[in-house]
């Protein structure tokens, strides 16, 4: 396989996805750029409603039209801009080169078809297989994701599975064609804590086996710390900080990220999921104010923050921040974890 320079498998440039609602235009994703390297796990974190899922759905162009629309941007995968593909070509990519796992395994499987049927379908849609081959392939996949007694479970319906088992089925479907990129949108949020760890381990294990890359969207900073190589922090549809895990956790430079990190030490395991540590509410994505969107909740806000949105700049190598005062944090003029 021809590798793109810098080992990039996927590159998203200046993505903007808007929803046209009765209340106005919701700028759910407004200028998101990031890249994904081969074999890495990229975490996307941020408060609820900040546009994480919409970013993920935009990559596979699964935004419900005509209400939602990708208005700008490029999604470069394998040298091609996915946003320029025709329907037929796009279908070849979906579930084949890039697959996706969703948050709620209870509703993500079709209730009226057997699990086996749905896993088989993932194989058959991209490859010419006989029925028997597809069946054998699906059984192998179910076994790979740790479904006990796959032969018997093959003919079961989703409602006969537990949440964790369903998510395993979703994973089996997602890895059916050994995709290069797996996007997991809060894959464990709906599951029990013990099951969560199992699912994440499974994904990590499969990733190293197939040398694919993962984008994991989560509220759980513990998950990010454990599995991600790099992290993109989003706020109100925009990336505000993007770097490797160490930088994000120990040298955050955006006041929002700093707030998040401070909160981990405060919160116990049980509340860790609720990523809402900073005073104030996230803004409505309709009629965003001029200037920095976070400034209303930011105790470091200065006059300049009102005038113009701070661009995402590379403040040090592989560490991008969108804050006018980032440099002061870096130089130690401002204290991060004080008081």
């Amino acid at each position: 396989m021809a590798e793109t320079e810098n080992n990039k498998i996927l590159e998203v440039k200046n993505l903007r996805t808007y929803f046209y609602t009765d209340d106005g235009v919701v700028k759910a994703v407004d200028g998101v750029s990031f890249d994904l390297k081969k074999g890495e796990t990229l975490g996307i974190v941020g408060e609820t409603g900040c546009g994480k899922s919409v970013t993920a759905l935009s990559i596979l162009r699964l935004i419900p039209e005509p209400m939602g629309k990708i208005v700008e941007g490029e999604i470069i995968f394998d040298g091609k801009d996915l946003l320029k593909l025709g329907q037929k070509e796009l279908q070849n990519f979906r579930g084949n080169r890039i697959s996706m796992i969703f948050q709620d395994p209870m509703t993500s499987l079709n209730p009226v078809y057997t699990v086996g049927n749905q896993v088989m379908e993932s194989l058959v849609v991209h490859r010419k297989l006989s029925k028997e081959e597809a069946r054998r392939g699906s059984l192998k996949l179910l076994e790979m994701v740790g479904i006990p007694e796959p032969k018997r479970r093959f003919a079961s319906y989703p409602h006969e599975f537990s949440g964790g088992m369903r998510q395993r089925v979703m994973i089996a479907m997602a890895i059916a064609n050994s995709p290069s990129v797996l996007i997991a949108d809060e894959p464990t949020t709906a599951l029990d804590v013990t099951i969560q760890a199992q699912i994440l381990e499974l994904m990590d294990e499969l990733k190293s086996k197939t040398n694919s890359s993962i984008i994991i969207i989560t509220h759980d900073l513990g998950v990010v710390a454990k599995y991600a190589n790099r992290v993109m922090v989003m706020y109100a549809g925009k990336p505000i900080e993007f770097s490797n895990v160490d930088n994000i956790f120990y040298k955050p430079m955006h006041p929002y990220t700093i707030g998040l990190m401070k909160s981990i030490t405060r919160l116990d395991e049980k509340n860790r999921k609720k990523l809402k540590p900073i005073e104030g509410l996230p803004p409505s994505l309709i009629d965003l104010p001029k200037g920095c969107i976070f400034r209303i909740r930011c105790k470091y806000a200065i006059n300049q923050c009102k005038k113009e949105y701070p661009p995402l700049v590379e403040i040090e190598k592989d560490h991008r921040v969108s804050c006018y005062r980032a440099k002061e944090f870096m130089d130690g003029i401002l204290e991060r974890f004080g008081n």
Binding site: R94, S108, N110, Y113, S122, V125, M170
Partner: peptide
């Protein structure tokens, strides 16, 4: 959600509507 799943698998619109 399972309709989004079906599209994400790479199924054509006809398959998604006609089957799922």
């Amino acid at each position: 959600d399972y309709i989004t799943t079906a599209y994400a698998k790479g199924l054509s619109t006809n398959m998604v509507i006609g089957k799922h």
